[in-house]
């Protein structure tokens, strides 16, 4: 299963970004293979409006099933939930820590 984490950078060691629509990066981890990829979200960061919708669309298109982020606005939430994506709220720590906590079902 693919999980995305909003992060300040594109690494597993990067700090979480509490924002969803204007998060700097999305780090996407495949929990089966352990591999990860990073999406630079500068288009979302710089969007004049509708950042949550644009970011939501990217997450939907990337095939992610769960997103770990600080907070989703109402528009982003509508996009994500209508695609059946689970939103898990978490702030602080690194991407790797968030994934570990998620695997242990601590979130």
């Amino acid at each position: 299963m693919k999980i995305a984490v909003t992060a300040q950078g594109g690494e597993l060691t990067s700090e979480l970004d509490p924002r969803f629509g204007r998060a700097k990066w999305f780090v996407i981890i495949d929990t089966e293979t352990g591999e990860h990829e990073s999406l630079d979200n500068s288009t979302g960061v710089n969007a004049s409006s509708g950042a949550g919708i644009a970011s939501g669309q990217r997450i939907v298109d990337s095939g992610v099933k769960t997103i770990i982020t600080g907070h989703c606005g109402p528009n982003a939430e509508r996009v994500l939930t209508s695609a059946g994506i689970r939103i898990v709220e978490r702030t602080g720590g690194t991407v790797a820590e968030a994934i570990e906590a998620f695997k242990k079902e601590e979130l």
């Binding site: 969007a47 409006s49 509708g50 950042a51 919708i53 644009a54 939501g56 669309q57 939907v60 996009v79 209508s82 695609a83």
Partner: peptide, 9 residues
Amino acid sequence: QFHALACIN
């Protein structure tokens, strides 16, 4: 350009 539309499934 205003993200007024999203395509989901």
